[in-house]
């Protein structure tokens, strides 16, 4: 269903006004306290131009860091349960990098295999992803090693790619993308054989993810996990910025009369993640937790869902306080 069109910078600016008038919230990368983060914007001018990507990922728009699952009231011999439906708002995620857009595919898989998670789905269904191809990359990026690329269409409803002559190639990829375009079809023009590749960043593959997955079963007892994670402080920042990490905790917030059950982000890198009440911990060493992170993303998940739970965005490497670089570590594992 993909159709390829063009849109000029001026028309794209005009599209923001159309989206606003249509009641769509627009979230785009913009400066927040000196960092780039996704935030509500009204105009194209507010969107940060010269940047790799936000520190945090877009997953929060469908999977908030803390969210209510239910609430209740308590009285002696009585509990009243209250179901909860999240408040949602039609939202355009503008300018997501192709890696981050692809991250939604992993979240979709986990939240909907076997049973459907209505909280994730209610938010996800409101999202239209307008991706923006990358014209620059840094040494944390490795999308091309995990099946993506600076101009990959995975996960985007519309993908914009900057053109040398100005303006953008606009690939309309899904029904949601089509619906967004149909709000202002006159702002788009037919494409005319433009070269999508012309301005794309060059990201040389460092390893090959199927080959990596094939290596893992033989490396479980290797020293490589301890060597790589010696400096890991188990802070969990990698998981919190990750667009595909989905592991969560369920916690209670209550007084003696009422309360709510909350879902919160969690991380397999944290010691308490698997800690039993008895004190027994199946993954008591940081190296075992680092190994789990790699095996889950590139082995177990790939086996169950057909591809790695990693989009090569490099957010974890940029956020790591002890400079662990996932691309380098995975390349090392691949080359064992």
């Amino acid at each position: 269903m993909a159709t390829t069109l063009k849109i000029s910078a001026a028309s794209l600016a005009a599209l923001f006004a159309v989206l606003g008038d249509a009641g769509r919230r627009i979230l785009g990368p913009a400066e927040v306290d000196g960092r780039i983060e996704l935030k509500a914007v009204r105009t194209l001018a507010e969107v940060a131009g010269d940047q790799i990507q936000p520190v945090l990922s877009a997953k929060e728009t469908a999977f908030p860091r803390v969210e209510r699952l239910l609430s209740y009231r308590m009285a002696p011999g009585k509990v009243e349960l209250q179901d909860y439906d999240p408040e949602v708002q039609p939202t355009v995620l503008f300018g997501l990098r192709p890696c981050e857009a692809a991250g939604f595919n992993s979240l979709d898989a986990v939240f909907n295999w076997d049973t459907r998670d209505k909280f994730f789905n209610a938010r996800r269904e409101q999202l239209t992803v307008v991706g923006l191809s990358c014209t620059q990359a840094d040494d944390a990026c490795f999308c091309t090693s995990v099946g993506g690329g600076p101009g990959s269409t995975k996960g985007s409803d519309i993908l914009l790619t900057p053109l040398p002559e100005g303006g953008y190639l606009a690939e309309i990829l899904t029904e949601r993308g089509e619906a967004l375009k149909d709000l202002a079809p006159a702002l788009f023009q037919p494409a005319n054989g433009e070269d999508k590749e012309a301005m794309l960043a060059k990201v040389e593959p460092s390893f090959e993810h199927q080959g990596l997955a094939a290596k893992l079963p033989g490396l479980f007892t290797s020293d490589i996990w301890a060597e790589q994670s010696l400096r890991c402080i188990g802070c969990g920042a990698c998981a919190f910025v990750c667009p595909t990490c989905v592991c969560f905790d369920i916690q209670e917030e209550a007084d003696t009369k009422q309360g709510q059950r909350l879902r919160c982000w969690d991380s397999c890198g944290l010691r308490q993640f698997t800690l039993h009440a008895s004190g027994h911990n199946p993954r008591s060493a940081q190296s075992e937790r680092w190994r789990q992170r790699i095996y889950h993303k590139f082995g177990y998940f790939a086996e169950r869902f057909g591809g790695p739970m990693c989009v090569g965005c490099g957010k974890c490497s940029r956020a790591c306080p002890v400079d662990m670089n996932l691309k380098e570590h995975l390349t090392q594992v691949y080359e064992v």
Binding site: V110, F111, W113, D114, T115, D117, V246, C247, F248, D249, I250, D266, C268, F273, T274, L275, H276, A277, P282, Q292, Y295, H296, G299, Y300, E303, R304
Partner: peptide, 18 residues
């Protein structure tokens, strides 16, 4: 019996190998 939160194959906590 590993530690669990969701019981539904989503929260990741009880994951052991595949």
């Amino acid at each position: 019996e590993n530690r669990m939160k969701c019981g539904l194959g989503k929260c990741g906590r009880c994951n052991t190998g595949r």
